[in-house]
Design a protein around this nucleic acid. Sequence first.
DNA 1: ATAATTTTGAAACGTTCATTTCATTTAAAA
DNA 2: TTTTAAATGAAATGAACGTTTCAAAATTAT
Lengths: 193, 193
Amino acid sequence: MPKTETFNRKEVLQKATQIFHKKGYNGTSMQDLVDATSLNRSSIYNSFGSKLNMFLEVLSFYQSYHNTNFSQGIANSYNATEAIETIFELNLNEILNDEDRKGCMIVNCKSEMVNQEPSIKSFMEKNQDRMIAMLEDIVYKGQMEKVFNHKQTASQYALYLFSSIQGLRMTGILNKNNEDLKNLINTVLKVLY
Amino acid sequence: MPKTETFNRKEVLQKATQIFHKKGYNGTSMQDLVDATSLNRSSIYNSFGSKLNMFLEVLSFYQSYHNTNFSQGIANSYNATEAIETIFELNLNEILNDEDRKGCMIVNCKSEMVNQEPSIKSFMEKNQDRMIAMLEDIVYKGQMEKVFNHKQTASQYALYLFSSIQGLRMTGILNKNNEDLKNLINTVLKVLY
DNA sequence: ATAATTTTGAAACGTTCATTTCATTTAAAA
DNA sequence: TTTTAAATGAAATGAACGTTTCAAAATTAT
């Protein structure tokens, strides 16, 4: 029967992610993707349909990679404090390792495309719901453990933390000073205790 | 002698700002700018040199507009608390009035172009320095007035506030609930007292 | 009115854009 | 070995990109 797909889809997505992350959606051309993936133009269209479709797959790929990291970090945490700190530490590490100042691809995409592309808007709404649910869960547990205060509801703190992470990622584009960023994170988390 | 420039440069910049803000740098075409400004292609190149150059002027225009608002807000404040609250209120109003979810143009541009265009990187570094200096000044005064605590230096709090504002602007792209955002701002500011 | 000089309009520049086409090659199943 | 369908390569599609060109129109000071 037919020849089967020879290239490794994950590898291709990984390479496409790199270039989309670096240049953004509008800044990335099909030629960039052909060069980066060393796949044929036709193969890209056969396998992904369109540039936008490929980008949406790339976004999900990037998202699930991060979700895995977060979930593992949370799972390995003994309590809510550790879980929250792990999340911020993972973000800090990404900032410090991001030598070419690309920032977070999801934050970048939100700022570039939410008001232009409905499919991206819907992706970002789901992403926000998921992130806030995760954060709310942790905060709620922390409040039950009596390590976090009850001055605000878990839901309110979750939005605050979600907003703070986005701010951290934006700040981390230009500011890569480890001490400054650690202090910033400490300040963000102080309100919980 | 010569014919003088007939069009109003500020009006043109204002219209160019609208379209750049809406579509981003890479998403805006020269044709978009011709249509938006109703200026001739040649006139744009005569007066602004290039798309990038025009964008840089637009950025400064947008920045100075905001700086004016901030400065007025601060000048009209009786104390540091009011000054900080005014800054966050101005941002909140922008979010609530931003019906098409464009976000802050400076934040968007930072995420789109800092890693691609040196002139933008340098603009953003200066913008950050200016913003942080302004915030540090206010926090310092608040600490002198004994309404803000000394758990962190004014400089550290300034970076925290700068980061929080960027987070607020990113959050405001999708979340336009007045109560939620006011609560978020309260949470951000709580750490100062 | 004349001279000076910029704005303007319209067309064209060469390049790049995302996407399509299609004949050829490839490899697995029959 | 033949069949089958996907992967591939290379070229072409037409539209859009940022930018340039230049003659014609417009406006001001002489």
